[in-house]
Simulated assay, not measured.
Amino acid sequence: MLIDKSITDFLAELKSDSPAPGGGSAAALAGAIGAALGIMVGNLTVGSKKYEVVHEQCKRLSLDFEERLTALEKYIDEDTKAFNQVMKAYKLSKNTEEEKQMRTKVIQESLKAASALPFTVAETCLDVLELAGKILSIGNINAASDAAVAGRMAEAAMWSAIYNVRINLGSIKDDDFVAEMASRVETMVARSEVLMDQLVKTANEKI
């Protein structure tokens, strides 16, 4: 599994001529790094008596970060699996009309799954961005830069996942599915812009 590899081995696979792992798994990893940084800020805050008044809030935020981290670690491998299913579908036999129809159906189903997975990654990274803003506001000021990086990583990861959603939508023939996903992505982007503006404002005040 990719998640079990060393950083060096993961990067070696990423830079190879194999199409997977690719941007989707990289997006999940970036989001996971953001979540881990958020947890670190929480630990540094709870570990300081100076911030005792926000210890309970930070503990709750850390639990929320942990939940997203666990999910994103899983998505690193799931994204590659989803992409491999698409590649497998394209290799199906198309010698007869029946085989062609079955191949088209399987391709479309796999493309939908390969769009849904990075969308979920993007949603999870949006959560990490929101949590990073919260921990930045109340956390140990000595770790403010780490909280800001957590948010920046989460935003970058979210956009990385969105690009993977969009490229798959371009090959999907189900117009209703495409329209719904595109609309949900736009809603997500609008939300991220609000959260990012607040994160930058708070970071500028603290750093």
Rank of each mutant, 00 (worst) to 15 (best):
G170V: 00
S137D: 13
V165D: 10
A144Q: 06
S137N: 14
R166I: 15
G139L: 06
I138M: 10
S171L: 01
D127E: 14
D175I: 12
A144Y: 01
R166W: 14
S137G: 13
D127V: 13
Y163E: 12
A154N: 06
G170K: 13
I162Q: 04
A182H: 11
A154L: 00
A143Y: 06
A132P: 14
C125I: 11
A182P: 02
A150H: 11
E155K: 15
D174A: 05
R166Q: 15
F177T: 11
G170E: 14
N142G: 14
L126M: 12
S137F: 10
S171I: 01
V178G: 01
S171C: 05
V149T: 14
V128C: 07
L131S: 01
G151I: 03
Y163H: 05
I138P: 08
I162R: 04
A179Y: 03
G133I: 09
M181D: 02
L169S: 07
A148G: 12
A182C: 03
A154R: 02
A157W: 05
S137Q: 15
D175N: 14
G151V: 00
L126I: 12
L129C: 10
E130V: 15
A148P: 04
A154F: 02
S171M: 07
V165R: 09
L131D: 10
M153T: 03
K173V: 00
G133P: 06
D174P: 07
D127M: 10
D146F: 03
A182V: 03
A154G: 07
E130D: 15
K173I: 05
I167T: 00
M153D: 10
A148R: 10
I162G: 10
L129F: 11
E155M: 14
L126P: 02
S145V: 15
D146P: 07
A157R: 01
L131W: 04
V128A: 07
M158N: 00
A156N: 05
S160H: 10
V128D: 06
A182G: 04
L169N: 08
A161Y: 00
A182Y: 07
N142E: 09
